[in-house]
């Protein structure tokens, strides 16, 4: 068991109104699972993903990550878990423009304090794995959308995390690059990383072995299927 959410609530205070972004979420995720998270806009998918990624804290309820109660951890302890165990893939890539592909991928290792020589090998391996062997010194603006997303995945996976969280990773890509992206993520999942993908695309959502559907801050469907890749 990697993740256990118990009666999670996330309430945003907007002026005098309360927005219940997440309501009574109970969810258990095992190591190595592949989940898709679908649902209408505003249903709370991103909020749930941010919470799982320790970028946000629940208003109430408990969140166990690898049997540790995350709600008792302080900011830097949570930062440490994000750094070593969780990889994010964003819709807008979020690459730092002034850094090269190599330097962008290097960032999480640098934050962890890995020495430069060791970093070098790991970053090489991650970029090679994404088919970016000749793009080390390119800045993001010198790369195509698909290449940028692959740099972002290399950055998310260079630390060999247990959990990969992807919030609409194909949302900014054409169909071909989007499919390529999903295949890369599925490949990582088959190597043992737990994968959670938020998507609007039903075709992509159906590829996951476990499909969650959210409406109004609640999980309304939790379907397990046999993989159809």
């Amino acid at each position: 068991m990697l993740i256990k959410l118990d009666r999670i609530q996330r309430i945003f205070q907007v002026g005098s109104e309360q927005v219940h972004a997440l309501q009574d979420i109970n969810l258990t995720i095992e190591k190595g699972e592949y989940l898709s998270l679908m649902g209408p806009s505003g249903s709370g998918k991103s909020t749930l993903l941010n919470l799982l990624g320790l970028l946000d804290r629940p208003t109430s309820g408990s969140y166990l990550f690898d049997v540790r109660d995350t709600t008792t951890l302080d900011d830097s302890e949570q930062a440490h878990i994000r750094n070593s165990r969780i990889g994010f893939v964003f819709q807008f890539f979020h690459l730092i423009q002034r850094l090269t592909a190599f330097e962008n991928v290097e960032l999480p290792l640098m934050l962890r304090g890995v020495p430069a020589s060791k970093r070098r090998q790991q970053v090489h391996a991650a970029l090679d794995g994404m088919g970016l062997t000749n793009r080390f010194d390119h800045r993001p603006d010198q790369l195509s959308g698909g290449q940028r997303q692959r740099v972002a995945i290399a950055r998310a996976t260079v630390t060999a995390p247990d959990l990969i969280l992807a919030d609409e990773p194909t949302g900014n890509l054409d169909r071909k690059s989007g499919n390529e992206m999903i295949e890369i993520l599925e490949q990582l999942n088959s190597e043992g990383m737990t994968l959670i993908v938020v998507t609007h695309d039903a075709a992509i959502g159906k590829r996951a072995k476990r499909q969650l559907k959210m409406v109004d801050g609640r999980i309304v469907e939790d379907i397990r299927t046999q993989a159809t890749t």
């Binding site: 930062a79 750094n83 999480p108 950055r155």
Partner: peptide
């Protein structure tokens, strides 16, 4: 701001 958010997502602590 975006860079700072990213660094935090990548596991930078407030002190860092």
């Amino acid at each position: 701001t975006g860079e700072v958010g990213l660094l935090k997502a990548l596991g930078a602590s407030p002190a860092q």
